[in-house]
């Protein structure tokens, strides 16, 4: 007995993936983060090509598992592949993604203002931060530390 065929195309899969949150910054989805590159839907399998934000990102396995779990309902084998054929860059983050980052207290890449008060009077405390993709800044106006997404 084969599983009943569910009508599914690339757009269905992509909108399902838009519900998968980044494990380190749950406010942004992996689609808005620009991590989802290729989606191919076949009769038996769904292939998803994802781009690591950083080569050694420790969240990759968690992302893979979340993608597999989210796509399980489509009744096909899910094959998730990480690759470097296309480099992930911070330009891949969508406008909506940038707004989600700001709303959750992160300065989007290339934005030199404070996500809390909007002041431009900010200092870089550390090029490096608690994860590979973040650096640490300090707002001299509202006196809050915050994190910024590194430009790569």
């Amino acid at each position: 007995m084969s599983a009943p065929t569910v009508l599914v195309d690339e757009a269905t899969v992509r909108s399902a993936l838009a519900e998968v949150a980044d494990p380190e910054i749950p406010a942004i989805s992996i689609v808005d983060l620009g991590v989802v590159e290729r989606v191919q839907v076949g009769d038996d399998a769904i292939h998803v090509e994802l781009l690591p934000t950083f080569v050694g990102c420790p969240a990759l396995d968690a992302i893979r598992q979340a993608v597999e779990a989210r796509l399980a309902e489509f009744g096909r084998v899910v094959k998730v592949e990480f690759g470097y054929r296309v480099p992930w860059t911070t330009d891949r983050i969508t406008e909506r993604g940038r707004r989600s980052l700001t709303a959750s207290g992160f300065a989007p890449p290339g934005d030199d203002t404070c996500p809390f008060c909007g002041s431009g009077n900010v200092a870089t405390d550390n090029l490096f931060g608690p994860t590979q993709c973040r650096s640490v800044r300090y707002c001299r106006s509202c006196r809050k530390p915050f994190e910024a997404i590194k430009v790569v």
Binding site: V55, G56, C57, N126, F128, T131, Q132
Partner: peptide, 20 residues
């Protein structure tokens, strides 16, 4: 503290490059 974070992050990058 800043260098603790920085050096750890650098090391994590390098181990990621090594793995790839």
């Amino acid at each position: 503290l800043e260098e603790d974070v920085a050096m750890s992050s650098l090391a994590q990058d390098e181990l990621g490059h090594a793995q790839a």
